[in-house]
């Protein structure tokens, strides 16, 4: 009933031609650009990697073997686990979580500062300055960080000049460059949702709390953070999803011994030409991150609707 009303209003406001066109375009986007590609990946993940001649033949049946490979490896007796890939998977998820938490702590004070010093020209300039590096391609940014973190990079040179270290520190091998790169890659996606919600907080509420004797910690715990929660969660969701699914930063900044799960997916697709296996890995990553996000939202009592606000 209510849905019907929304649609009739929609056509009334936009006219039949424009309305049909808009709905058509949105449906096209949803169906052909999001749902169908994902469904085809899902379908791939349950099939054997067959030579082209056998596709559609009697051997082309559904199987769980691609998923079993992630857990047990090529051991068909299921005696040993695929510890290499599983380790990479768990490490990717945990690292993405840490990157997300790091970004929350880094962005919150900044978002608070930007959001509460409303309308000043200086703040607007700061926001523009934050955006400018993102005009540059993600891969170039990752290479720039690699140069900064390199043995004879800016950071090591500076540390040695200040005599804080005598030998250059291997930031790449110790994964420091990787985490810095991941943190940096999506930090604006954390900052802006937070900035938006904090900007909408009535300053008088902070002053009222202060007037009633609340400390800064108490004000943030009881007033600012509850208000900013939807923004924090929506930023955290994006940063976590994108970090877990990042490819450029791990490829360029990762140490030789540390693989990111997306790199495994990439290898299956590109090097092994086993799309079925790659699709299974990708689906596992997607499903796990969705489950984690939903669980965290449940724990922090945030609804989907709040995030869209």
């Amino acid at each position: 009933m209510k849905k019907k009303m929304i649609f009739s209003d929609f056509f009334k406001n936009n006219g039949v031609v424009m309305g049909t066109l808009l709905i058509g375009l949105v449906s096209f986007w949803l169906i052909f650009l999001i749902i169908l590609p994902q469904l085809s990946m899902l379908d791939y993940s349950f099939r054997f990697n067959l030579p082209p001649a056998e596709v559609g033949g009697p051997k082309d049946v559904y199987t769980l073997s691609n998923y079993e490979h992630l857990i047990y490896g090529s051991d068909s007796t299921h005696q040993t686990y695929n510890t290499v890939d599983l380790k990479v998977f768990v490490r990717t998820i945990i690292a993405a979580m840490l990157v997300t938490i790091f970004n929350i702590f880094l962005c919150y004070p900044l978002a608070y500062f930007l959001g509460q010093s409303k309308g000043s020209g200086f703040v607007r300039l700061l926001v523009v300055l934050l955006i400018i590096p993102y005009w540059i391609n993600e891969i170039l940014r990752a290479f720039a960080l690699r140069i900064i973190f390199g043995d004879s990079g800016l950071l090591n040179e500076a540390l040695m000049f200040l005599h804080l270290t005598s030998e250059p520190i291997d930031f790449i091998r110790q994964d420091i460059a990787l985490y810095a790169g991941l943190g940096y890659a999506y930090i604006l996606l954390m900052l802006f949702p937070m900035y938006n919600v904090i900007e909408s907080l009535d300053r008088n509420q902070i002053e009222a709390a202060r007037d009633m004797g609340a400390s800064w910690v108490h004000i943030h715990r009881r007033i600012v953070i509850p208000h900013a929660k939807p923004g924090i969660v929506s930023g955290a969701t994006m940063v976590f999803m994108l970090s877990a699914g990042a490819l450029a930063a791990p490829q360029i900044l990762g140490g030789p011994s540390s693989l990111w799960f997306t790199q495994l997916v990439y290898q299956w697709f590109n090097d092994s030409l086993n799309w079925q296996q790659g699709a299974a890995y990708a689906i596992v990553l997607l499903a796990s991150t969705i489950i984690i996000v939903l669980t965290v939202m449940k724990i922090f009592k945030v609804n989907m609707g709040d995030i869209g606000k």
Binding site: D202, N204, Q205, E207, A208, A209, R210, D211, M212, G213, A214, S215, R222, I223, P226, H227
Partner: peptide, 20 residues
């Protein structure tokens, strides 16, 4: 500071905490 004075302020827009 305002938190240490024996005063209480009622704001023009009241500034009630909407989530409490």
């Amino acid at each position: 500071g305002p938190n240490k004075r024996p005063t209480a302020l009622i704001f023009q827009n009241l500034a009630l905490f909407p989530l409490m």
